[in-house]
């Protein structure tokens, strides 16, 4: 018998600290599998941010730097400018990227930095236990919107993929989701394409990944996948928002 599904060498094997059912774990595996399949574990350099995944430098098998909150795209810019031959990626949550790090992600994209951003959107601050994020939905209850997010007070959730796709420096931006097997497979295809386009020097690439937060959503893990489908996808439609190769090979 032959292994059809094995543990990827792109991960160190250190058990992950994420809450049971948190789909960050799946996203980590997908990124690691693509690093292995592209045979770049030995040259890739990743940048972890601040949030639940602050220490994923322990999980990814490639070299990693841990960046200040919101600054991963700037750190990655520095790394890529020193090692243009290396595949460079940032792994960021919605608080890190869409709140404190908005300027850094916008300008990294506008500059067309040859980096890939793995942007995990779970509509909440996980690490600090459930505060409103820029991607929190209208009406969504969090520890800082106890009566539900009210646009009149808290403003509207931000669709980062659409926003960044208006920038000419962005070569490929796709929003995917973790809520079922088909979409997880689609997410892996998107990450593969983003990394491939980076290595071809096409420009800034990003994959926004709708992900769960059972603990702070207060929903069981399987129910959380449903919550993505019913509540998040209407606000954050899945799909390719930028693809300079569109028309060419998809």
């Amino acid at each position: 018998m032959e292994k059809v599904f094995k543990i990827t060498k792109g991960l160190t094997g250190v058990p992950m600290h994420y809450c049971p059912g948190c789909t960050h774990g799946i996203v980590h595996r997908l990124v690691a599998e693509v690093l292995e399949e592209m045979d770049v574990i030995e040259s890739a350099i990743g940048v972890s941010s601040v949030g639940c995944t602050y220490n994923n430098y322990d999980y990814f098998a490639c070299d990693m730097l841990q960046a200040a909150h919101g600054r991963a795209p700037a750190v990655a810019t520095g790394v890529k400018r020193v090692h243009p031959g290396s595949l460079v990626f940032t792994y960021q949550g919605d608080g890190d990227l869409a709140a404190i790090g908005t300027a850094e992600i916008v300008h990294a994209a506008a500059r067309g930095e040859r980096i890939t951003t793995i942007f995990v959107n779970n509509a909440i601050y996980g690490m600090t236990s459930g505060q409103m994020a820029p991607t929190t939905l209208i009406g969504q209850v969090t520890t800082t919107t106890p009566f539900g997010r009210d646009a009149a007070i808290h403003g509207y959730p931000i669709r980062m993929s659409e926003m960044l796709s208006t920038l000419d420096g962005a070569a490929f931006i796709q929003r995917v989701s973790m809520h079922d097997v088909r979409n997880v497979r689609e997410a892996k295809k998107a990450i593969t394409k983003a990394f491939r386009l980076q290595s071809e020097g096409a420009g800034f690439t990003m994959v926004e990944i709708l992900s769960t937060c059972p603990t702070n959503w207060g929903i069981d893990p399987v129910g959380s996948l449903e919550w993505i489908k019913e509540m998040m996808i209407p606000q954050y439609p899945l799909g390719v928002y930028k693809d300079v190769t569109a028309g060419g090979d998809k």
Partner: peptide, 15 residues
Amino acid sequence: VAAINMVYGAAGAGA
């Protein structure tokens, strides 16, 4: 802010 973090990355990568 971005500039000092680019230094963090570039110098952290050995330059």
